[in-house]
Amino acid sequence: MADRRATPELVGQRVAAAIPTPRPAARRLPPAALLLVGAVALLVLAGRRLGYGLAEYAQLLVDGLATGSVYALVALGFVVVYRVSGVINFAQGAFVMLGPMLCISLLGPLPDTAAGLLLAALVATAACAASGALLHRLALHPLRDAAPLARIIVTVGAYVSIQGIALKVWGPRPYVLPAFTTLSMADRLVDVGGVVVQAQSLWVWGTALVTFAALGAFFEGTVAGKAMRACAVNRTAARLVGIQVDRMGTLAFALAATLGAVGGIVLAPSTRPTFDMGLELGLKGFVASIAGGLVSFPGAVAGGIALGVLESLWAGVVLAGFKDLFAFAMLVILLLTFPRSRAASEESA
């Protein structure tokens, strides 16, 4: 027994066995997908009992697609940061709130025109990107070797601080960002075969599509994007080939903040932003990113849209106050069915 253990072949085999073989993610249907199918079936059945017809479902679907696109944008922010720096950035929600709030404040002195709105939105987004970068440099970079719990607490602390500042600056009341089409509070409604679509929803979809495309182009076509992908694959190897890993982390935080801010700004005309809107949107974005596997960009988009649609269906069949329960129940269920979260590796313990 003892000499068998000593043979180099056996040692080699053991080492090979110890190295986990990467599983092709696309081949296997993830448990999340099964879960989603089940959830849709249940919700549709529940809706049938309330007497919902095709038109009602279509309406819920359209409403869900708009919020789902925003969840997808927020979820992409989680994925970018997680892939590049290994942190789950709880403060992501803060930028979803800061974007529209800054935009509204900037809009005050600006002329009430499309150009004014665009300028305000761009400046607000840039400010969010800068604060995202700052957050990484000041709070997370010094703790890059700390335990995961410490880093979670830091991002939570950052979220609470930013929300506290927002409460100080803007107060607890809800604000109004004019709809992009009409530049006023009342949005134009488009009737498509009995389904009412807000013009703002079209803006949300359009912006989301453009952002997804731009993000794709950034990661495929630019040096910085490729460097960030390299960090995601292997940080040490990326450092060895001369990529400044810390700088890429800062860039990832800025990018995530940008995505969050864009999502918040396009959503704002249909929701009335408040200082505390970031918690809900941030957490739902996180749920969406978990649904997509936390490391996959297309997964995050699919997860966000699925969550938006399902939540809309859910909201159609339950008491109004329980709308938010769905996402958090999904969060717990998804975490439990998400293999990476239970992996017996010591690095995450």
Binding site: I88, L149, F328, L335, L336, A343, S348, A349
Partner: peptide
């Protein structure tokens, strides 16, 4: 669940109880 994930799940649970 471990690390980040446990923190997120307990957070989700806490909010569910609150709701």
């Amino acid at each position: 669940l471990r690390g980040h994930y446990l923190a997120m799940a307990t957070l989700g649970l806490g909010i569910m109880v609150y709701i």
